[in-house]
Design a protein around this nucleic acid. Structure first.
Length: 589
RNA sequence: CGGGGUGUGGCGCAGUCCGGCUAGCGCACCUGCUUUGGGAGCAGGGGGUCCUCGGUUCGAAUCCGAGCACCCCGACCA
C-alpha cells in the first residue's frame, strides 16, 4: 500500500473526550472513527489488524475442531421468548417489529440460534461432539459505552458453541477452549489470566473470564499469589474468621443523634466497626413473565464489610436490582441511617454469615436518632436467607489457602461458559443416544471481543509517540519511509524494495507522500508498523538505508542490497519471539 | 437510570458571565515559490445551520424555556 493513497489520515490533535491511550492513539493514527456513542467505523489500518486477529482466532478454533458458520444478526423474538431471556434481559436488547408486525430482536449473542440449529440438524449421538463458531456483529445497547473500543455497543465477537452428548464431552471441549484462548491472547501479544466468574445472563454453572490486567480495567479481581486462586470480585469468596462464642445480652436502645454512618456510630459507642451491623436497601425484580415482581431486599452485613451486589442478586434470584427509594424504605418501616431488620415488615431479609454468626452487634433501631446494642440475628429478627453476600477485598484471606489476596483491575477480553441444557431444553435441541433414548444436547459457549482485544493490545503496547504493534497483528509488517518528494535515486530504490518485499509475501506500506521527513517519522511512530526502512539521499550516498524496529530506540544502517533481506529477517525473528510465548497453561477452576 | 460536564468551519479551542456591527485563533485543506533526516517558511485562498426548536429583544453564539447529542463518575458486559 502506498501511504499517499491511504484512505485515512493521522491527526495532530484528538478530542479531549478520548481519555485512555488506546482510544487516543487509534483515533490519532487514523484507525477508527466514532459515528455515535459506542459505535465505530474501522478504517483500513484497523480493518487489516482486526482481520489478522480474526485469522489467529480462526486458526486456534479450527485447531480444536471448530467449524466456522455465520448466523443472523436479526432474530425473531420467539426463540428468545422460548428461553425466557426475552423477558429476563432489559433494555440492553433492542427490539423492533418487522413490516408484518412480528416482534424481532437484534442479536446480542447466539445461544438461541445454535439451539434452534441443533433441533434441526442433530438427531443422533453419532453426530456429536460438534463445535461451531462465527465472527459476527453483536448489538448490545450497553447502558454506558466507554474508553473507545474497550466497551462499545456494536462489536464483532468470536462466539463458539460446543455441542456434546454428555458432561464429560463438555468438560473436554471447555478445557480445549481454556488453552486455545491463552494461545490466541499470547499470539496477539498480550498476557491474560483466567478467573472464575459469574454466569450472569448466560446461566450455567462453571465459567471463566479472561482478564487483561490493566489499571483502566472495569472489573476488580482477587488474586492469591500463594495458591493461584483468582476470581472476579463479583463472585470471589474469602476466609472468614471464626466468631467468638459470647452469651447473648439484652438488647438496649441508645440515643445516637446524627450518627448516620458506621464510622460515626462506632466512634460514638467506642466499639470497632466490626461490632456493628449495617443494612443496605435494594429493590429487586424477581421471577419471570407473569410471576415477575419487584421485591424490597434488606441486606445485612457486618459494619466493616461491603455488600457485593452480584452475590446479593444471585442470592435472591434477581434479574435486576437497584437502590430503594426513600419512599420504598419508609414503606417497610425502615429508617435510612438507622436501618436494620428490627421491626421491618414486607422485606426479604438477606443476612451475611458475618452477622448471622456474630453476637451482640450494634444496629440501627429504625427510629431516627437511635441505634440498638446487642442485636442478635435469629433472636431479634429472622432472616429469609442467610448466605455469603460480602465483597472480598485487598488483604482478605484466600478461600483455598488463607494467604492474604491482592486486588487488580482487568478488562474482560473473553469468557467461557458451561451452559448445560438450558437452551436445548427450551428449543428442542435433542438427540437419540445409543440406547435410543431422547436426550438434550449439552452446550458450552465461548466468546472473545475482537475489537476489545485489539484495544487491549494497543494499551499493552505503545509509547508516548504512538502504537507499537506485535508483528502478528500489525496492519503492515514493514514500513518504507521514502525521504524524497520527487523522482530520483531514493524513489527508485524505495520502489524496488517495496516490490521485492511484496514479492516475498510481506505486508508493506510505502510512505511516498510529499511530506517533510519530520512528518513522516512522526506518523511512522504513531501508526506503529514494527519494522521500518528509511530510504534517503543522505544514506544512499554512502550506499546504505536505515533500519529500525519500532520498539527499539536504536537505528542501524544496512547496505542497500541487504536491506530487503534484513527486513525479512526481522519480521521472521519477531514472529518467532511471539510464538515462543505460547505455553501450556494448567487448568484452574 | 442517578450525579457531573460539554456542544462554535474537518480537528483542537477562544468568544457566552456583562446581547451590538464582516464570529476569531491554531492545526488540517487548496494554489504558487522556496525548503527537505524528527510535525518547514512566505504569499494568496476555500470552508461555519454558532446542536435543534421555541421565546425575549431594534438586535441573540451570548439571555430564558424545552428537547437532542456526546463525554466522565456510579449500578451492568466481549
Amino acid at each position: 500500500m502506498r501511504m499517499s493513497q491511504l484512505f485515512s489520515t493521522t491527526l495532530r490533535e484528538v478530542s479531549a473526550d478520548a481519555e485512555v491511550a488506546s482510544h487516543q492513539l487509534l483515533l490519532r493514527a487514523g484507525y477508527i472513527r466514532q459515528l455515535a456513542s459506542g459505535i465505530f467505523s474501522y478504517l483500513p489500518l484497523a480493518q487489516r489488524a482486526l482481520k489478522k486477529v480474526e485469522d489467529i482466532i480462526r486458526e486456534e478454533m479450527d485447531a480444536i475442531g471448530g467449524q466456522e458458520i455465520t448466523m443472523p444478526v436479526v432474530h425473531p423474538a420467539e426463540i428468545w421468548q422460548r428461553t425466557g431471556r426475552y423477558y429476563a434481559i432489559g433494555s440492553e436488547m433492542s427490539r423492533f417489529k418487522d413490516k408484518n408486525e412480528r416482534d424481532m430482536v437484534l442479536a446480542m449473542t447466539h445461544e438461541e440460534v445454535v439451539a434452534d440449529l441443533v433441533s434441526r440438524e442433530i438427531k443422533s449421538y453419532r453426530q456429536l461432539p460438534q463445535l461451531v463458531y462465527q465472527l459476527q456483529t453483536k448489538w448490545r445497547d450497553d447502558p454506558r459505552p466507554r474508553s473507545g473500543l474497550i466497551r462499545v455497543r456494536e462489536f464483532t465477537m468470536k462466539d463458539s458453541y460446543s455441542l456434546d452428548a454428555d458432561w464429560e464431552g463438555l468438560e473436554k471441549q471447555y478445557r480445549a477452549h481454556y488453552q486455545a484462548y491463552f494461545n490466541i491472547f499470547h499470539r496477539c501479544g498480550i498476557g491474560a489470566i483466567a478467573v472464575a466468574s459469574d454466569t450472569g445472563m448466560m446461566g450455567g454453572k462453571v465459567a471463566h473470564e479472561y482478564m487483561y490486567l490493566t489499571p483502566i480495567g472495569e472489573d476488580t479481581l482477587l488474586l492469591c499469589d500463594g495458591c493461584g486462586y483468582s476470581a472476579n470480585r463479583q463472585i470471589a469468596t474469602f476466609q472468614r474468621e471464626g466468631a467468638d462464642r459470647e452469651d447473648l445480652l439484652e438488647k438496649e436502645e441508645v440515643e445516637t443523634p446524627n450518627m448516620q454512618t458506621i464510622e460515626e456510630l462506632a466512634a460514638f459507642l467506642d466499639i470497632p466497626t466490626s461490632r456493628t451491623s449495617k443494612a443496605v436497601f435494594m429493590m429487586a425484580t424477581t421471577g419471570e413473565g407473569e410471576a415477575q415482581q419487584d421485591r424490597f431486599v434488606l441486606a445485612v452485613i457486618r459494619g466493616d464489610m461491603e455488600v457485593n451486589e452480584t452475590k446479593l442478586a444471585n442470592a435472591v434470584g434477581a434479574r435486576e436490582m437497584w437502590p430503594a427509594s426513600a419512599e420504598e424504605i419508609a414503606a417497610v418501616g425502615a429508617v435510612p441511617g438507622y436501618g436494620s431488620p428490627l421491626g421491618v415488615e414486607g422485606a426479604l431479609v438477606v443476612v451475611d454469615p458475618s452477622v448471622a454468626d456474630a453476637a451482640n452487634l450494634a444496629a440501627g433501631a429504625n427510629r431516627a436518632g437511635f441505634h440498638t446494642r446487642n442485636v442478635n440475628c435469629g433472636r431479634d429478627y429472622t432472616p429469609d436467607i442467610t448466605t455469603d453476600i460480602a465483597a472480598a477485598g485487598e488483604g482478605d484471606g484466600c478461600p483455598r489457602c488463607g494467604k492474604p489476596m491482592r486486588t487488580s483491575r482487568g478488562v474482560e477480553v473473553g469468557n467461557i461458559f458451561q451452559l448445560g441444557t438450558k437452551y436445548t431444553d427450551a428449543l428442542g435441541g435433542e438427540f437419540l443416544d445409543a440406547d435410543g433414548k431422547t436426550q438434550p444436547v449439552i452446550m458450552g459457549s465461548y466468546g472473545i471481543g475482537v475489537g476489545r482485544l485489539l484495544a487491549c493490545v494497543a494499551e499493552e503496547s505503545h509509547d508516548e509517540h504512538g502504537l507499537i504493534w506485535p508483528i502478528s497483528i500489525a496492519p503492515y509488517q514493514v514500513l518504507i519511509t521514502l525521504l524524497a518528494k520527487g523522482e530520483g535515486e531514493a524513489q527508485t530504490t524505495a520502489e524496488a524494495m517495496y516490490h521485492q518485499l511484496r514479492e516475498q509475501g510481506l505486508d508493506v506500506l510505502l510512505d511516498d507522500r510529499r511530506e517533510n521527513p519530520g512528518v513522516k517519522f512522526n506518523d511512522a511512530d504513531l501508526i506503529g508498523i514494527p519494522v521500518r526502512l528509511t530510504v534517503g539521499d543522505r544514506g544512499l550516498k554512502k550506499g546504505v538505508v536505515e533500519f529500525k524496529l519500532r520498539r527499539d530506540s536504536e537505528r542501524s544502517e544496512v547496505p542497500v542490497d541487504e536491506a530487503v533481506e534484513r527486513a525479512i529477517g526481522a519480521v521472521r525473528q519477531l514472529e518467532g519471539e511471539l510464538s515462543d510465548r505460547i505455553v501450556e497453561v494448567p487448568y484452574s477452576e
